[in-house]
Amino acid sequence: MHEGAIVHSLLESAKEIRIKEKLKEITEIKIVVGRFHQIIKEVMLTNFEYMKTEYNGFENAVLNMTEEDVKVKCNYCGHEFSIDEPIFMCPQCDSFETELITGKELYIATMEGTK
């Protein structure tokens, strides 16, 4: 259940951004989450619906979460591939000399609100 703590951090950051950008009512927050975090979208959205009511200006905000696939690069043969299982072996040359390129993202991309 790390989703609750992540939504809390998200709203704390968004609260400051709302003030800095002089936005009144926040209508949408777009976030990007890499699949490696094993964050469950439905749980994020449910937590957000409950927790946003404690933040001024977020009562009508919608959370829009985009998930990023886990992509890996083989440093031995250069092959780039997506994985569904956490196995960091190159399917082309069987090397484990690999590194994660995407899949660990966890950031706020944009926020939309009324001026």
């Binding site: 950051s13 951004i17 950031y107 706020i108 944009t110 926020m111 939309e112 001026k115």
Partner: peptide
């Protein structure tokens, strides 16, 4: 409405 790029 205004959309701001955050990337945070």
């Amino acid at each position: 409405k205004k959309e701001v790029k955050v990337m945070q």
